[in-house]
Each structure stands twice: as structure tokens, then as C-alpha cells.
Write a protein that binds this DNA or RNA. Sequence first.
DNA 1: TGTATTATTTTCAGAGCCAGAAATAAAGTC
DNA 2: GACTTTATTTCTGGCTCTGAAAATAATACA
Lengths: 399, 399
Amino acid sequence: MRTTFDRTRGTDLADVRRENLHRVLEVVRTEPGSSQNDISARTGLGVAAVSSLVNELLDAEVLEEAESSAPQGRGRPKRAVRLSGRWADVVGVSITRTLITARASALSGAPIGAASQSFSAPPTPDEAMDAAARLIAAAVGDAGRGSRGPRIVVAVPGAWASTGFGGIELDWQHVDFSPLSRALIDRGLPEPLVGNDGSLATFVEGREGAAADFSNAVVLFLGRGLGGSAVIDDALLRGAATAPGFGHTSLDPDGALCACGQRGCAELTVSLTQFAAKLEETDDLDGSQPAEYARRLAERAGDGEPRVLDVLAEAQATLAHLGAIVVSLLNPEIVVLSGPGAPLAPWLLPEAVGGMLPVPTARGRFDDDTAVLGALAAAQELFLSDPLDTRAGSPAEWS
Amino acid sequence: MRTTFDRTRGTDLADVRRENLHRVLEVVRTEPGSSQNDISARTGLGVAAVSSLVNELLDAEVLEEAESSAPQGRGRPKRAVRLSGRWADVVGVSITRTLITARASALSGAPIGAASQSFSAPPTPDEAMDAAARLIAAAVGDAGRGSRGPRIVVAVPGAWASTGFGGIELDWQHVDFSPLSRALIDRGLPEPLVGNDGSLATFVEGREGAAADFSNAVVLFLGRGLGGSAVIDDALLRGAATAPGFGHTSLDPDGALCACGQRGCAELTVSLTQFAAKLEETDDLDGSQPAEYARRLAERAGDGEPRVLDVLAEAQATLAHLGAIVVSLLNPEIVVLSGPGAPLAPWLLPEAVGGMLPVPTARGRFDDDTAVLGALAAAQELFLSDPLDTRAGSPAEWS
DNA sequence: TGTATTATTTTCAGAGCCAGAAATAAAGTC
DNA sequence: GACTTTATTTCTGGCTCTGAAAATAATACA
């Protein structure tokens, strides 16, 4: 626990301003149509400060006026505000072995543009970055602010190591993302932040999905692999993005050898890839999007197809064990099965997981869109946390 | 992930001041004898601000002047400062089934007083709180500041649940700590903060122990049970205090039934209690302090006693499995075996744990003192984070 | 001994931020 | 139309930082 810092710049008035701008925006995000008085009450800031803060945000077109929904009573009417719906301020990107998607939204969440490209063979890092830069530019179109670029977050199935980004699913190792940064800068866009898909899924499930009402949650991200992270005390578990994650938790030291080098990893029985490998003569998962495959599987399970039920039962047992471990370590209030595999939740999630601490479970809300929505939510959070910053985003891992 | 807040008070200038006071103290703590110029360089604050901050801390007797160690060169000499060694500002307490210890220190870490009481039978909550209050008052003696009481942190082998504090080792359930608060208030002392021993051990190992040089670490606390927590991005993993912890991680769903209700918990093979139960005809652990027992065990292992080696080898296998799981979830740079059981590290820690991510390991530094030193370190951190606060501490869990 | 040199700390504007109070604005009510 | 009510803005004051200048306290050298 290094606690020293060198020249990080002391805290000063500007930090106070930034923090309070963030608080104001957080209130407006969760309660669009708030008035300055409302904001003052929710944040604890005085009305004078809120007036100054809100007007600055209106001037910067981070906020815009909204028609007040509440019926007009006595007295001067409220001036309701909401997050701006005008500019392409946030961009979320998802990279997988079959599809790269970019979505641009306004701060309000209003969609601005989207673009995607599918791949018959998993893209190399260069191919992926090239495509991503093009798709991002297409999604943003001409809706970007002149002065300031959008916040861009890219979700990738992989994790950071000291040598770079790598992942088993894409078979990338030691990948350096600076070509993506350069390609974006060439197009006049700021540098992106790259994060793990499971962590970003956890963020969006926690922020506006199945775990929104809880301060502590574990989110399992079931796609081609198995990932996820946790929310602890209302904050995303950091550092988890750099770890192999839930999928490569070794549950049985004498189990089958996994591609990661360990034995008995959870992913060997819980992942859409493994389901397909066990059920189909031809591995037809890559012929369809993961959520589509998961939905088909759910149908077949619903029809009672025995082999499907067997495979899911095996996965369920693994998940129960993994759940018990994670619950005993992190003590969540809820465990969420998120990602493309969420439609299989009825077969994979027992009503409660964990032995010592039984915990309720829920199905994720976003299925195939989870990763890209996670990236969008993260990009929005980045914007809102420093809404008047005009610097380009610096490249960094996100959570 | 609840992100709303009601009336938490906006950020203001006072927060800036508090934060900067904390930064100054953090520099002085890690480098006693720093001058104002040094502090300015390390914190990024201007010299004018540092002058004001340091003088305020000197006035409050949080800092004191130190003789400068550097040889006097040209120019005006530095005014070296260090943390005050005068007052009993921090108190750490450890409660176990055989011993309650309280230690009072100055902010500098200089010991002020200590008191302890041993128990032949595990104390009830009332007995423990009664003794703790008495021992704390004795340790502080007349070295307390008149105006402001010390920060008091109590380490207990147990965890918080919604209903209160509980732990298997002490057989406490739903324990409410308000009697301890009242007993302390009656003696003119502020309310204590109660935390899990494994979390506090992690804090002190991370702050000044075996994990001091790492930003990410896992600490296993081996005592009568098995606990611990993690440091992630230089911060203690919060929320872990409320979880059953490492000891009750179910490694084998078909394993032996544990007192916690799960099967195959790590603690069933890795804990001093279990070692004693397996090795001795009479469970003689409670006849001695845990670290003493661990040292004897280490000697017997060093002498090659076969049964001891067998038990430790079994424990080692369990730890390797637990380590692999924890490493894949939290990605530490080091795994530390801390607590009274640390002397057994040579037999319990393989050179590297984890399959996918081999991670170096280390022995904890504090043995039997780990819990009380963790509590002391936490109390110091509480003081330093708000050094001019005059309110009494509010009761809260301290993870 | 006296003066120059040097490093450190303190003092002095200046600007930014929030709180609280007063002033202003915009509606409804009598 | 005057009054009441509610919302927002303006104004004053206190606090905190920064940057520059001044003061301080020691050594080095003539």
C-alpha cells in the first residue's frame, strides 16, 4: 500500500468546483427535471452555489432546460434541467471475435449514431483497432462538439498485464492500444480508455441495471467466456480488470486443464463456447451472436431437451460453487448473471447462492448489449466527473 | 450501486483544508524530519500553503519540531518536523478468546501505555467490553489531551452482519457494541471503531509490513481461524470486513461440514485451532498464545516431526488452492501470510502461489501483535485523516 | 568583525469558491 | 392591482489556495 505521492498537485479550489459540478450532474442524471432548489436539497450545497454551478453547466451546454413535469403551483416556476441531448459526448465500443460495435450517445443517453462491422474470423489487434477507429468516427458523425471530443470507452474481453492487454478469447497477448489512440487522434477524436468487458458490464448493471438498488453486488458476465466483477460500497471493484476474473477461478485443482494453464477453471463448464462445444457437432456459436445462441439454448431447455438440460445443470453446479466462494469473499447483497448468456439465468441461477450467506440472484438487463452499454455508461461517468475539462482524454485502463 | 446522496453537505473549502492537512501529515509520517520545503515538493502544494498548514499543526501539537538530521549547509536551516510523540492520540485493542490487549501510542508511534487481561474461558461480549474499556483507560492513563480524546480501534475476530457483529471463534452473534461506547464515554473517552482482525492485519501489513511496497496485495491472517483481506490500488478492500473471509471460502463442496454451515471451508485444514486438534491429544492451544504455539509447531516441523509435517503439508495444499482462487480474482502482486501463524510460513507458503498468475509470497512481520498493531495503525490513520477534528469519534465499522 | 550568499520560511496581494442574507423574478391569490 | 409564495440571482464576507516579494537565519569569505 504505497501511500506516498510526489507532486500530485495539492487539493485546491478547482477540485471543490469539479467535485460539486459532478454532484450536481449526478443529481440531474438520476432525477432529470430537477430544479436548482431540488439540487440544493439533494446535494447539501447552498442555493447560491447551485445557481452558479447550474448556470455554468447550461452555458457549457452540458445541461439544457427541460419542460417541468410538475404542475405549476404558486410562486415562481422551477427551471427544470436535464442532461444535454444535443452532442455526441459519449461513445461506447465493444470488441468481440465476431463483431465490433460503436455507439455514440448524448449525455442524456439519447442515441446519436451507431456503426458496426462483423468478422468471420477473429480480428487481429491491428484490424480491430483500425475498424474501431472508423466505426467510432462514423457513430459520432458531425454531432461532436467542436471544442471538445467525446469520452470514448472500449470494452474488450481481456485483461491488463504489465506487458499490455491480453485475452484468451481473442487470443491477443501483450497488445498495445496506442495505434487506436493514434488512429482516433488522426480523426480529431480524443484517446480512448480500454476496459474489461466484465468490469464494464458490472458497472452498468450496478448503475442502471439489475444491481441498481444495492450497494454491494457481484456480477457474472456470461458470454463466450465467463467474467465479471463486483460493486463494493457503491464503487466498482478496481484492480479486478487486471485479473483473469471469475472464469479462471480454479474450482478443482484436479480438474481438466484450461487454456489459461490452471486446472478446473469455472469457464470450462460455464461459458457459451463450452455449451456449444458440448452440444453441437459443429461449433456453431460463431455463426450467430452469443445472445442469439443463448436464447436458442434457453428455448431448447424450455422444451426439455435432455442434453441441453444436462449441460446447464453441470454449469449450474459450477456456478453455485463459484457463487459460494465469491459470496464468502465479497459479501454481496445480490448476484447478477449478466451479458449475452443472461437468458439462461432460469437454468443457471439457483434461487439463492452461497452456503453461509444465501444471497438472492437476478438476471442481467442488457443481454447482447451489455458490453457496449457498459462502455457507454463508463464514458458518461468520465464526462460527468469532470464536465468542463477540455483536455483530451488520456489513455488508461478503465476499472 | 446507489449513487444518490441526500444532504451529505457539498464539498467546500474546509474539505480542501482537511485534505491538505492529511497530505502534509502523510508526508511527515513516511518521512519524519521533513521540512516545509520538502513537504511542498512532495505534496505539490505551494510553500505559502505549507507554511500555513504546518504552523497550524504545530500549534495544535499534532506535529512537533525535530532536530534536523541533515548536516547544516549554507542558508537558513530547515525546520524539521515530525509527528507528535507527546499525547496518547491512538489506541489499538485486540480481543481474542484468551486475551484482551490495549495499547496507547503517540501519533509518532511512540508507546504510551499498554494493559491486558487474559481469560481462561472465552469472554462473553459483556465481559469483553467491560474489560476493554478498563484496559483502554489504563493504557491511556493521564497522557490524553484534555480537549480531544484518542482514536480507538478494536480488532475482533468476527464480521459485521445486518444484525450486529458476530464470529465463530468467540461464538458471538448479533453483538451490539454500544455498551463499549457507553463504558468509554463514562470514562471520558470517545467512541471506538470496531473492525475485523484480518482486515486490520491487512491494513498494517500494507502500510508498514510485508506488503508495504506493493499497490495490490492479499494478506492471509492465520490465527485460531483464517481471515484476511486485500489491498487493491493502494486501498484496503472495503466490505471485506462484513464477509466471512478467506477462512470460510468453500473449496470443496463435498468436503467436511464446517461450523459455518458450508462444506470444505479452508479453515478446516488451515488454522491453528485445527492444527492443534489434529496433533495433540489435548487441545493445548488455549493454554498458550497462538504465536507461541505456532513457533513451537515451527520448531517441531524444523525437527522433522512427521505428523506435524503431514498436517502442514495438507494445509499448504489448501492454501495453494485458496491462493490460486484469490489471485485470479484480485490479482495481487504479493500474498502475505500474516498473524500469529506467520512463523509457519516456510511450510505453508510455496514459493509462488497461483496457476495462471504466479505470485511471490512473504511472511508477515508482526506475529502475535498483528491485530493490535493493525488497530493502532487504523487509529493513527483516522487521526491523521482529520487531524483538527474535535468531535468524538462516531461508532462505525472499520474494515 | 562585517558583508555577501544562500536556503528557508513568512507575509502580502489576488482570485476562486461557498454560505448566508438580501434582492429580484415570476407566478398564483385575493 | 396589491399581496403572497416560491425560485433564482446578486451581494457581502470568510476561507483557501497560488505566486511573488519580503523577511529570516544560518554559512562563507574578506
